[in-house]
Each structure stands twice: as structure tokens, then as C-alpha cells.
Design a protein around this nucleic acid. Structure first.
Lengths: 341, 341
DNA sequence: ATGAAAGCGCTAACAT
DNA sequence: ATGTTAGCGCTTTCAT
């Protein structure tokens, strides 16, 4: 049978209040008594009842984690890695995470995640883009919220963002340094701040290098940045531009699509065309050739978000923080110096 | 401020017991009173405190979901889809799911998932293969447990399994019907019951068709059934057997690896070699050519597991059930009739 | 430094 | 059919 605080008190020969004090370190208890209590706790394998603690504290001990179905199920383990990071940090902080996925086409009549409706969470983490109407409705509940990899329209909450601009610069500079000047940008969903910032970095790098920005080298008309749209985007691009020698894809999923197209159509990578991605999802390594990319520290982003949220929860005041996580160039084999034709 | 049962009682002009009775439908209440209470609940936007309910009921309202890190992060959304299924059903049943991932090399000294140690769950769902020593230690907590896609060594718990034998038969028969006789089997991790049953189905189908089983057409020496090992397995197989005209890969991940190798080495699929996978993960569709495969109803498996667990929880008795979910042949473009050389 | 007791929001046994 | 109340396991104020 599960032991309660009473059992511990009896075993240690003290009152339940004393037990509570040593558990929470909330009052000075003589070290002798403290040790007796600690020993009793251990010998009884006692763990405080979450329900009771939550009831009396008015907290739930839970954090809600929201992301869209497609982000959860997408082939590249990007948001799932972020989730894992939050879960790791939640362990340290003593919270449980309630994960829910929502339809990306969430509309006004869809019910909110039930952990919000049922007051089952103390705070919320949102990963990736979610519909604006959801953001509005969530914010009316006044739950401390942290956004990861997305900037909600109303500037309300702590944010954990990728340094996408810097990443875009790094990726493009890498190609420029290899001698490329006809560099294409393959993107999608350009309203997403992460992706538009990567494009911004691309443009800025070209400007810095005094290379003219050509709009016909930029393809951003797909809705989702996935493999299929990468495949189709490079196809349409190459049908009009034969002289492209390097491609910067806005994420690895699109880069994989690009690579598939190039492999299917007898372009040699990197001999004919250099290719760089963004994110560094695990799949990169298994490609042929392994993909040069910009690494995003996904697990760390989750950890930072959770830390931010726990801080907000403890201080009662929402610090309007913004964390920009650094990225890193990972050179593998899909990029090389330009060859004169 | 959040409203409590007292607020509702006051608003409806009844006692808190009455409110509790209508919420839980646990006693007959006149429909007139019931309506007043219901109206009060709605107008106050009342939601019972989970903590209070849990405290008094001795339950947690939570289900623990365990899977290994590599299963959670693997490229093909197989176990994540299963998780989603359990989450859907948990919504109906009013449970929350606490998801935790564990190291696949979990050893004796690693701590158990904290939701077990802290008595934070009423039951457990385990998805996929987990280490035997973990199973032992979990079972000592006597929590109702359902296993999905894995058969623990001690036959303790309700199981939700794929009809792998049938699937192996279907896949192989499909190839046989197309005229193939030199059919290779590419597998891995052959101790996993799911994968060994698929091999069993393969062998049985060949026997039924009076085709000789050749051990040099069966490769199962990789540790994990992933893309890389698929790639390497077919490579070594084809280096020794030139006359293979069809391949049955034990899952889609390996099939994708096989396809990559074939594409890279100028084998035309399905003209030169037909290829069939197993699982039907989303990636199948984006391949070139789209992969013929055996569909596994992943979401449904999660739903069934959750139903089974909820049932066990309600009946207090662990029904030693075993659910075998049916599979289905999905013909796409990677298989075709054999061509005479 | 420690203990007694009230009370968090709810369920269910018992009373009316 | 409805109300009264003890008690679930804990925290915390107030005494000692």
C-alpha cells in the first residue's frame, strides 16, 4: 500500500507538519530530526501525493504542449526533438507535460485543448506555427505561455527563437566562399518568420558580397516546406535557369526533396550543384551525399523554453524574454568549390 | 477566478452533494433540479478540480506512455502515430497521457520513469520493444499495463499486436502472384516478434506456393530495421545474388533504404526489381516510385490499446486480452509482373 | 524547533 | 430526492 505523510510521521516519531517542512525545506528543522524524517521517507519509499499537493497549492503541476498534427507527424524529427528537450527539463523542474496536437486548420468552433478548458495546466508551450485564432483564444485564459520557433502576432509572451537571419547568412556565405554566385533559394510558407528570416539572411549575404539578387533564383510559392515541395520547386527552377551552381534550401526537408530531384535527373551533387539545408535533422547523414546544413539545437530549445516557463511560473511575473539560440554550420559532402564548366 | 462546486451549489440553490451527484450521475436527481445545476455549471463555466477528484478517488487520471528514444525520434512516424491514437482515445475517456521516452540501453541502475516512482499514473502503455529489465521492474508496481507491438517475455498483460504473419503472407503472395520466384527478404532485429513473424509469413507463402526457401535470399543481420541497414543489406545481397527479381523488406524504413540503393545503382523499380515494404508510413507516397506496402492501422492501434487499458482500469481485473489488428495490401508502383530477361 | 488544526475541492456514506 | 458531513493527503498559520 502507498504510504502517506502520516506513515512517515509515525515512523519518524514527529508530526506531519514537521515532515512537510523537511520535504519542502520551508522551515528550519534540527538536523537530527531532519535525518530521522529523511530515513523514514526512504524506508517507506514515500512519495508525496501529487493530487494532494496540487489541491492545496492550487497548482496542477502540469505544462501543456501544443503543436499541430503535421508538425508532430512530420518525417523530420524537428518538433519532436524540441518536445523531448522540454520533457528533459520538466523532469528537473518536477512538472509533467501534457502533449496535444491540433488540426493546423483549427477554426473558431473547434474546442480548445482540454487541458486548458479543464484547468489542468499551469502554463503552456507552443511549438511552431499555430493558427492566429487559436492564439487569441488561448491568451484569454491568461496562462503563462512560451512560444518556440514562432512569433505570435500579438507580442505577449516569452519567445525561444532560432537565429535564422544569422543562419541564412552563414549558409549563403559558405556557398559564396566556395566560389558560387548563381545561388538559388528554395523556400516555402514565407509568412513563417523563421523561413522569411532565412531568406533575409540569404539576400543580405549576397548584398554583402556584391552579388546581384535575382528573383528568378528564389522560389517560395509552396505552402509547406516539405520534401515534395522541395522536389517540385527545384524542378521548376531548373527548367528556367540552367546556370545555377548552388542551392540553399530553407530547411532540410526541402533540401532532401531537392536532392532527390537532382539525383533522379543526373545532376551530380556537389560536382554540378552544391546544396545546403537548414535544421540538421537526423536524416541528413543517411543521404547520398550527406547534407551540409545549418544545425539548430533542437533539444536545447526545448530546455530553454521550459526553463523560461518555470521561471515565469515561479516569479508570477511574465518576463518578456526572447531567447535567440545560435546555429552552426555543419559541413558535410553536399557542397564544394565551383567547377568551371 | 475559477469557480468551485460551492459556487455552483449556491448558484443553483442546492447542496454541493447534489451538484456532485448530477456531475457523476451517481444518484437519481429530479430532472428539474438537475437542469438548474447544469445551467449553473454552464453559466459559471465550472470544471471540477482534477486534483480534488483525484485526491478523493485515489486515482491520478493519468496514463503513462513509454517508448524508447529512437522509436520516438525515428524518421518514420510509426510510434508517434500510435501515440496520437492513444491521445485521441484518452480524450474520450477523460485521461491525460504522460509521455516519456527511455534510453534503449536502459540498465538496472537507470531510474524508472518518474510517473511510476511518483505514483502519478493509473496505468501504463508501452509501445514497441523495451529492455527486459525495464519490463521486470515496471511489473513489480502492479500497474495495469498494455503492450503495443511487442510481446514481453512474461505473459502478463493485454497486448495490441499487428497481424504480422498475415501481412508477411500477403506481401509475399502479392509478389508470387506477379510471377516472382526469386524473392528476397530484407529484415533486421529478428528477435523482435513483429519482424520474425513477417519472416515467418514470407516463408509460409513460399512453401504454400512450392517455391524453395533459399537462405541466401534472406538477410536479417542488422541490428535496427532502418534506412541505412536496408541500404547495406540489399547491397550485400545483390553482390552475391544477381537473379533477384523481387524484395520484401520487413518495414518501410528498410524498404526506403533498399530503394535508395537500387536507384543509386541503376536498377529500375519495378522493372528490374519489384519492392514491397511494411507499415505504410507517410514517406511511402513521396518516393520514386511510390512504395507498395502492407498498411498497419497505427492510429487505430493506439485507440484499441487505450480502450483496453481503460476497460482494465474500470473492471479492476486485468483481462488477458490480445488484439490482433488486421493489415491491408496497398498496391502502389514499386511492384509489377516479372519480365523475362 | 516542533505540533495542532484549519482548509484546499471534492465524493460518498449517512441522515432526513 | 436532497442535505450534512467526514475525510482523501497535504500545506501553512498559529501556538507552544
Amino acid at each position: 500500500m502507498k504510504s502517506t505523510i502520516k506513515d512517515v510521521a509515525k515512523e519518524a516519531g514527529v508530526s506531519i507538519a514537521t515532515v512537510s517542512f523537511v520535504i519542502n525545506n520551508s522551515k528550519h528543522i534540527s538536523s537530527e530530526t531532519k535525518n530521522r524524517v529523511l530515513k523514514a521517507i526512504k524506508s517507506l519509499n514515500y512519495h508525496p501525493s501529487k493530487s494532494a499537493v496540487n489541491l492545496v497549492s492550487g497548482k496542477t503541476g502540469n505544462i501543456g504542449f501544443i503543436l499541430t498534427d503535421d508538425h508532430f507527424l512530420r518525417t523530420e524529427p524537428f518538433y519532436t526533438s524540441i518536445f523531448l528537450g522540454t520533457e528533459f527539463e520538466a523532469r528537473n523542474a518536477g512538472y509533467y507535460i501534457l502533449l496535444t496536437s491540433i488540426n493546423p486548420d483549427f477554426n473558431k468552433n473547434d474546442p480548445l485543448p482540454r487541458f486548458i478548458l479543464n484547468n489542468s495546466v499551469d502554463g503552456i508551450i507552443v511549438a511552431g506555427k499555430i493558427p492566429a485564432n487559436l492564439i487569441d483564444r488561448i491568451s484569454s485564459y491568461n496562462l503563462p505561455t512560451v512560444y518556440i520557433d514562432y512569433i505570435p502576432t500579438k507580442n505577449c509572451c516569452p519567445l525561444v527563437l532560432i537565429d535564422n537571419l544569422q543562419g541564412g547568412l552563414m549558409a549563403t556565405n559558405h556557398l559564396i566562399e566556395l566560389g558560387h554566385t548563381n545561388i538559388a533559394f528554395i523556400g516555402a510558407d514565407i509568412e513563417h518568420p523563421s523561413l522569411s528570416d532565412r531568406l533575409k539572411g540569404y539576400k543580405q549575404a549576397l548584398e554583402n558580397a556584391k552579388i546581384q539578387i535575382k528573383n528568378n533564383l528564389i522560389v517560395t510559392n509552396s505552402k509547406y516546406p516539405d520534401r515534395v515541395s522541395g522536389y517540385n520547386s527545384i524542378k521548376s527552377l531548373l527548367s528556367k535557369n540552367k546556370n545555377v551552381t548552388a542551392v540553399f534550401a530553407c530547411n532540410d526537408a526541402m533540401a532532401i526533396g531537392v536532392l532527390n530531384y537532382l539525383n533522379d535527373n543526373d545532376y551530380k551533387v556537389p560536382k554540378d550543384i552544391s546544396l545546403i539545408g537548414f535544421d540538421d535533422v537526423e536524416a541528413d547523414l543517411m543521404l547520398n551525399p550527406p547534407l551540409t546544413t545549418i544545425r539548430v539545437p533542437k533539444i536545447e530549445m526545448g530546455i530553454e523554453a521550459m526553463k523560461l516557463l518555470v521561471n515565469t511560473l515561479k516569479n508570477k511575473k511574465s518576463l518578456l524574454n526572447k531567447i535567440l539560440v545560435p546555429v552552426e554550420l555543419i559541413e558535410r559532402e553536399s557542397t564544394s568549390t565551383i567547377r568551371k564548366k
